[in-house]
């Protein structure tokens, strides 16, 4: 099976709140000086791809969009884990684009890669959490689509997948070609690369394609959508204590949770 895995580079989402900053003028997240990592679920998607390859053979290509200068080194990890090739769509604006726009560029890149049976993405990115790339790619590539997939089994020209759902799980039979977005599961904890694979990864092919070479695809969902501002909600640094008897405290807390739309 030929599999393409889309990986996104994000600012380490595990940094403490104090290190999280937004440039007020542009609404961009401050990336400078912060470690960049592969977005959480994307590594799970890669692991699913590698497991499918381990079982049934084929080829795994990783695809990413972003400024090539900062991307290629960090993403050697994906090659070390077992991906065969890497395609970087060099796009200095990459981190600032909305999901729909990114998906259109990725779809163009996938068409240029050519053959594929399966495209995998993380179920959501650690930054904008739009959850749109997989469904949009599926439409753009005329492929089947299932999101929030926690397990995948190949079965005779189709896939049997397990989708996380509000009411539990769905077992879904999917035809190929398909685009799946992958959620974390104990079965897809990203593997630790072996040293020989880390060393071998240095010789694996990395293709860098300028974003300008990607033919503008129709269906850019982000056109006509503009980010006005991104703000960090003002946080009262001091804890607000709820006073009274236990029952009063409990009632006050419940009310506050409701006011905060947390119920």
């Amino acid at each position: 099976m030929d599999i393409i895995v889309c990986l996104k580079q994000v600012v380490d989402p595990e940094l403490p709140q104090t290190e999280f900053a937004i440039e007020p003028a542009t609404g961009r997240q401050v990336r400078e000086g912060r470690p960049l990592v592969i977005s959480t679920y994307d590594e799970n998607a890669l692991e699913v791809a590698l497991q499918l390859k381990d079982r049934g053979g084929g080829k795994v290509t990783v695809l990413t969009l972003g400024p090539q200068a900062v991307i290629s080194d960090a993403f050697r990890l994906a090659l070390a884990m077992g991906a065969d090739e890497m395609v970087v769509v060099d796009d200095p604006r990459g981190p600032d684009r909305l999901g729909g726009e990114k998906a259109a560029i990725l779809a163009a890149a996938i068409r240029r890669i050519g053959r594929f049976d399966l495209v995998l993405t993380g179920c959501e990115s650690a930054d904008w959490t739009e959850r749109v790339v997989a469904p949009v790619l599926a439409e753009a590539l005329s492929a089947a689509c299932v999101t929030f997939v926690s397990r995948v089994e190949a079965a005779d020209g189709t896939l049997m997948v397990r989708r996380m759902a509000d009411e539990g799980f769905h077992r879904v039979e999917v035809r190929l070609p398909a685009v799946l977005s992958v959620a974390s599961d104990e079965s897809n904890r990203p593997r630790l690369p072996k040293l020989k694979d880390i060393l071998a990864a240095k010789r694996k092919p990395v293709h860098v394609w300028p974003v300008a070479d990607m033919p503008a695809a129709p269906g850019d969902l982000a056109a006509g959508v503009e980010v006005r501002e991104v703000v960090i909600p003002q946080r009262t640094t001091r804890c607000e204590f709820l006073e009274g008897e236990s029952a009063e405290q409990a009632a006050a807390l419940a009310q506050r949770l409701r006011d905060l739309k947390l119920l």
């Binding site: 729909g100 959850r131 299932v146 999101t147 969902l221 959508v225």
Partner: peptide, 26 residues
């Protein structure tokens, strides 16, 4: 509604209708 069905339905529908898309609004 961005539930199990909606979070998959909305983007695909947007593509098919040639619509703008914003997900997970609060």
């Amino acid at each position: 509604r961005a539930d199990t069905v909606g979070r998959e339905l909305a983007p695909r529908l947007a593509v098919r209708l040639g619509a703008a898309l914003v997900t997970e609004c609060v």
